[in-house]
Design a protein around this nucleic acid. Structure first.
Lengths: 224, 224
DNA sequence: GCGAGGTGATAGCACCGTTATGTACCGTAA
DNA sequence: TTACGGTACATAACGGTGCTATCACCTCGC
């Protein structure tokens, strides 16, 4: 009488599979590939699975944002603390940019595309993002303690660092940076400017920035 | 025999009307209101007008981006050149932020939403954006000439300024900034940090930044 | 007057997010 | 063991999207 409906047995992995597939689609085929039908098809299920587990497409995107912050956190956790806190801070900046360039669409969803593209982040989501960034404040605090940076609120200085890194990376991903002010060259001199602005001397700042460049590949292995 | 088609006489203003309506929809109802049917209905025409005059929805959005840069240009052109180039530079920074906060969705389309939301900017569009920003380079050049900033490429220093302003504004629009590091407070101290990082002394920088705040309302009238 | 080209109104396509409906499976309780 | 209730999910449909094909109408050069 009725059609065959043949739902297969409930798959306990379907939730994580959907997130994984969605993140892969975002990375490989861009944001326009993030549709319920495409994700469901690639995960070998139906669109309803998205609504069962995430409530809506926005819910799935929300999980992808968390995945993005987890990858950034992963980079940060690999950075070793040395006796040069300014170098440590610069490595954080380099890791921030490396993560963004390795996951450009993910980064765009995390920061750029909240108002666009129809979906919105909740205050809880943004708080989670801020928490990941909070590890930088410790670095700045040590810079102040050791007299490298002038007396200031470490949280505020960390925000300055964040703004400059985010602005550069965002414009780099938007192809706004061209020669003779390419992204890499801008990045290096921007780091020096920020460190000097925070209170360090020019020579000392230049040395720490240069040192941080060599630490990057040593401490941050290539990750998928 | 055939249907009544009743196209009215070709309206020479329909192109500019579409841009105007689209910009208003973007400002008032957000990006999701930017649909061919909605724009056409509000402009009292059909969706075909969009394709006749702009080729696609992306073409219309492209025009909106130019409108956004025109507004920014408008702010910049109102700034008077004084004998304190650092103050002039800071006023440019303040105007940049004021324009972004006055046209948040427009700003998001200009910089944030290129990869997202399906549409893309051409290299020509981005070049036009860079050209608008180029007026800042002159300011930085005078800072270097007068010995306020250390010897450096003015274009590079202008880029540093741009990155920091764009990063702050972008995160502010994304509601990522909360107390005790609110946007306004971050903005003020960020300006000082940038100016000091470029080479100015702390006292001199603080004074020019404070002076620039008073110039803002005097030189930049409120505009729609 | 008349043909040519441009403008735009209508209808349709494929796709989107989302929802309603119904079926198969599960753990639990009788 | 059997019956039940809740969950997972397959299907189909609804209203929306960008875009295209078709065709009526207007304006312009001749």
């Amino acid at each position: 009488m009725y059609r065959k409906n043949v739902p297969r047995k409930p798959d306990p992995n379907v939730r994580s599979t959907l997130i994984e597939v969605a993140a892969r689609l975002l990375a490989e085929d861009g944001p326009q590939a993030l549709s319920t039908r495409r994700v469901a098809a690639d995960a070998d299920t139906s669109t309803m699975a998205v609504y069962t587990h995430f409530g809506s497409m926005s819910g799935l995107v929300r999980e992808i944002v968390y995945e993005g912050f987890a990858r950034l956190q992963d980079y940060f956790s690999q950075i070793k603390e040395t006796d040069d806190p300014v170098s440590d801070l610069c490595v954080h900046g380099r890791a921030y940019r490396r993560n963004a360039l390795a996951n450009p669409h993910l980064y765009a969803v995390m920061f750029g595309g909240e108002s666009l593209s129809g979906f919105e982040l909740s205050e809880e989501d943004r708080q989670h993002g801020r928490y990941v960034l909070a590890s930088i404040v410790g670095c700045v605090g040590r810079c102040v303690e050791q007299g490298r940076f002038r007396q200031a609120d470490p949280g505020m200085v960390a925000h300055h660092m964040w703004f400059a890194m985010h602005g550069l990376v965002n414009l780099e991903l938007g192809d706004y940076l061209i020669e003779p002010w390419g992204a890499q060259e801008c990045f290096e001199s921007q780091l020096v400017t920020l460190v000097v602005g925070a209170g360090d001397g020019l020579d000392l700042a230049t040395r720490s920035v240069a040192e941080s460049a060599q630490r990057l590949d040593a401490e941050l292995g290539i990750r998928a």
